[in-house]
């Protein structure tokens, strides 16, 4: 148990120190620029190691892109300008927030369609169930009355018998 804890501690330490090493070399005079830089490198995807941001990735390309982001931010570029720069070169893929357009519509509307579809199915099932719950025909009514009358007689007979037996047991 202790070994495992140590192991995970080491893993966390290694990962976080690598992350810190990725950022160490960038110094800013303006804290707002630093904040923008950090925000950007955590939202721009590394094209080389595709499921990491350029902040996470150790790939040389990620470093180049961090350098470029740093330069642009230092020169006073806005967030959108840096994102446009990356998207112009690496495609929409480079930004972790896909834009709303024809090819990405399914991403944005898919969940809504599924929820609406599910709600529709539930509604439809509930409705169709209450629709089938129609009254009995006259013939069926008569049959029901006959059956329940017979049942009543039977059950009183049975109750009487039961009562009689109970009495007998008690005495």
């Amino acid at each position: 148990m202790r070994v495992m804890t140590m192991f995970w501690l080491l893993v966390v330490l290694a990962v976080s120190s690598a992350y810190a090493a990725n950022l160490q070399t960038y110094t800013f005079d303006d804290p707002s620029k630093e904040a923008l830089f950090r925000e950007l490198i955590n939202e721009i995807r590394c094209p080389k190691c595709q499921n990491q941001t350029i902040a996470d990735s150790d790939a040389p390309l990620a470093k180049d892109l961090r350098d470029r982001t740093y330069l642009m931010v230092q020169e006073g570029a806005t967030k959108q300008e840096v994102i446009d720069y990356m998207v112009a070169r690496y495609g929409d893929f480079a930004y972790y927030r896909p834009p709303v357009q024809m090819s990405t519509l399914v991403l944005w509307l898919g969940p809504l369609v599924v929820i609406l579809g599910g709600a529709g199915v539930i509604l439809w099932r509930v409705r169709s169930r209450s629709n089938t719950d129609v009254g009995l025909s006259a013939e069926e009514q008569a049959q029901l009355a006959k059956l329940s009358a017979a049942n009543a007689v039977e059950s009183t007979d049975a109750a009487n018998q039961q009562a009689g037996r109970n009495k007998g047991n008690q005495s």
Binding site: P47, K48, P60, L61, D64, L65, R68, R89
Partner: peptide
């Protein structure tokens, strides 16, 4: 040398 033109081309490998 520094891969800066390659970035303009969108080269990632």
């Amino acid at each position: 040398e520094r891969g800066m033109v390659a970035i303009d081309f969108g080269v990632y490998g």
